[in-house]
Design a protein around this nucleic acid. Structure first.
Lengths: 209, 209, 209, 209
DNA sequence: TGAGTTAGAATGGCACCACCCGTC
DNA sequence: GACGGGTGGTGCCATTCTAACTCA
């Protein structure tokens, strides 16, 4: 399967999401992460440590992949794509993952962009709430309600804000490999997203023929 | 004076910083905020509530400013500018404010971009640490040390992570107008940045002639 | 399915194991825990807090279950059963779970008792290593090697020693409901045991007709 | 003197306690350990290595002791005795030693059983906290407070959790003969219990006539 | 002189606690 | 004002590595 991770605003955990979804998919088959973001965050992450899958930059010559046919591909799309770019991204993959934080600015950028995507026929996407503040903040629930009212499809689970994800970035590894207070919780959240993702695609394939 | 706020990564509080610096400068003279970001976050912020200064979009026709000669101008620059754009931005204003969060990804993006700016002669800039996590996190101090070791100039004070700033965004006002636990602290932090900013420019004018 | 949890020595987490396996199975269908231990530990656990399944004492009159037909049953067997009791327990259920700690005394008691079980035809059982000390102790691995050399079947995962399980006992709830450093890890361990358990029974049903 | 070691729950160090108290008493006179536990843990311990005192099983014919009149006798009682058995055990010896771990399940079993013992006139007993987790756990202190509040007499010192005791069980010797980090500490703890024990009996003999 | 033994240092990890933030 | 929760720091335990010491 081909998963595209894109966002209309930076700093919402797009690269982190792409990396961990690739890590999850790697457990189900060989996976390739294509780093198409301009600042090469995913590539730098990979350079710092050891990731269980391959990471290549988008513009890199194809011969680096000679003989490598991955079962899954995750694309870390460029930030803030134009509607045309987004349409191309959506058509390039099986599912579009749109991470967003539960703050007003990110939600506003997301909602205004979603109106542009409404015109794309047969678009498969899911919004992922990320960096949600811990209890007792209700920001995540408020954001979820607001998005559901706008009839925007979103994953059933959020990615919490935790230092474990920062440590993973520091170490250049996945959060599942990090010793930090809530690392396991973060990894389980990404696994839940991965499971939901496969279910969505399985369902769409069944009905789509 | 003309202040340009730019960043190489999204979600670091660029718009929030531009708005509050404009709010601070408005107390010292008529101020205009130019919203040059593609997603119009500053404009939308202004539309939601009441800001004590004018906000115009970059591409808007000039006649909306007919007869308005502001003492100060703050530019909310587009996200992730190219080196050429950044050079143009730097030359367009008196000082470049570069907000960044203290996480690894943002710092890496900042440092790699700073190497590009090293070639610009007479560049005046300051890096502003934003959204710094509260005690007992040492992320802010670590980031400060790392940046100082890289000989990157940064403001003496940070902007803390607080819900007060989120509420300000929700209300469409400045954090000084918001009733929230640490609103005053956030506002004082921005005032301190504003003071440091005027000192920097005063000093540069004195020596620069 | 009917799971029987028994042990030849006390203090090896028999009740804890029975409770958490019941909690896991409850997620897959209505589950009943029969507390057949003389000291009523499971019943007392249930009285202290809120468990997501029903707990009844073995000798209680049947009418307390009037109209309740659980999908799964977990039996917290009496400690140190005689070979005849153990045979009856094994025939009463689908699988016998035998928790043991990795210390010499428990292992010796287990191995000597396993020789008695060797005569039972078609016995389905698994040994579960519990309360395994954390890194860098190698007690768990040593015990695992010793048991495998004795050709004793054991689950692939251990239940670690953690205060989270104590807190769960204090609170009268499952470890998944407890806020403690390694609570999630303990719960995942029990879930892994539960998964392995269903796989074992599924496999045996497939081949057993 | 005749010391009986019993417990209402397994895995609390009953056999270890009986062995080491016998080892201590051997230093004050010839001592015999009677292994009355069904799983023969004490006998197996003795078989593995070399203990400074004799160990016999309860049911063994008396002629194995022909001509041996020990000064002291320690009885490793069967686990989880009925009230009648416990009464018989208590009357059989001078003092009843009841080891317990500081966890909720063991304490609950102990306290409920102590209500049964309240009816026994002239019962001499002491509760011994065993396997107490190291600093910074407060489980031992909490348990001590709880037991004191329930007016249950307990020894002044605890037996800590340490690998030295496991190594002693592996080697079939007393912890005083083992080379391990905290072996001496464990042995001193048992010596302190032994001293307290003799003081208790001395005092009771003085007043009891 | 060499090998086995023993003591010390370093590592990794777990459990508790202090402090602060955000909501009710 | 009270409470629940996250983050970082401290103290201690168990193991392993290293080095020195003893004895043949």
């Amino acid at each position: 399967m081909i998963i595209t991770v894109a966002s209309f605003k930076g700093g919402v955990g797009k690269t982190t999401t792409a990396l961990h979804l690739a890590g999850y998919l790697q457990g189900r088959g060989s996976t390739l992460l294509i780093d198409a973001d301009y600042n090469r965050s995913a590539s730098r992450w990979a350079e710092r440590g050891k990731l269980p899958f391959r990471v290549v930059e988008d513009g890199s010559s194809q011969n680096v992949l000679s003989g490598f046919r991955p079962n899954h591909v995750v694309i870390d799309a460029p930030a803030r794509p134009t509607p045309e770019e987004l349409k191309a991204l959506a058509e390039r993959g099986d599912l579009l993952v749109l991470p967003t934080t539960p703050d007003t600015l990110s939600l506003a950028a997301l909602e205004s962009a979603m109106t542009l995507l409404a015109g794309i026929h047969g678009l498969r996407y899911r919004v992922l709430l990320t960096i949600t503040p811990p209890y007792p903040s209700q920001a995540a629930e408020k954001a979820r309600e607001e998005l559901e009212q706008a009839e925007i499809s979103l994953f059933g689970r959020d990615i919490p804000r935790a230092v474990a994800l920062q440590k993973a970035a520091d170490a250049g590894s996945l959060v599942s490999e990090v010793r930090a207070p809530r690392a396991l919780l973060c990894w389980l959240a990404y696994c839940a997203i991965g499971n939901e993702l496969t279910e969505i695609l399985l369902e769409s394939w069944l009905e789509g023929g």
